[in-house]
Amino acid sequence: MKTAVNVEKITVAYKKTPVLQDVTFSIPEGQLVGIIGPNGAGKSTLLKSILQLVPKTAGDVSIKGKTVQQQRKLIGYVPQRGDVDWDFPTNALDVVLMGRYGHIGWFKRPKKKDKEHALSCLDKVGMKAYADRQISQLSGGQQQRVFLARALAQDASIYFMDEPFAGVDAATERAIIALLNELKKQGKTVLVVHHDLQTAEEYFDWLLLLNKHLIASGPVSKTFTTDLLQKTYGGKLAFLSSS
């Protein structure tokens, strides 16, 4: 099987101490991957450093055998929803169109074709009726779906999604998972930061267990074990499973 993402010994530090240390793994193509770890484990940082949004102290990343810079157009990204100003003067369709910017190129405006594509992506997440809605007038779950549609509009083959399920109801979560499985069927690779251990085993093919260091990376059957989860969450897991 071909490798979609290869990460070699990345170390990232914001202040003095590293928040990620010597993280190494590789993910085969066509997998639905869950990234799991406690708050502050460095999950968002891992995605950001793969996408070169934060500087690395050390390490290398390759996407399908080439550098990230060479493969930008193959990469789709869903940042954490809290990171943007939702009162920005723009509507849902316009946000989804931003997913086309990488393809449109400098100095050019989105064409009709881009708009149609963006609209069809909104449709895929059930948000077509809201295309003209100012984004602050969308509910949290709807905003999340707009972000998802924007990533779809990127026409990528590897997706990085930071907590796409945060703040969405159970029905929407199932619909999103169905969509991700659809992507997988098309041979795409999807990496998802996920917080719910109850559903992790059911949703994903592959897990990355992370807590500053990589605890494990592998097929769910090998990685979703009490032993490894215990190691990832430390003492906190007992609290999680008893509640």
Partner: peptide, 13 residues
């Protein structure tokens, strides 16, 4: 895009 969502802007290169 830079103003609305700098992370995504970086993400698309």
């Amino acid at each position: 895009l830079l103003t609305f969502d700098p992370l995504f802007a970086g993400g698309i290169g």
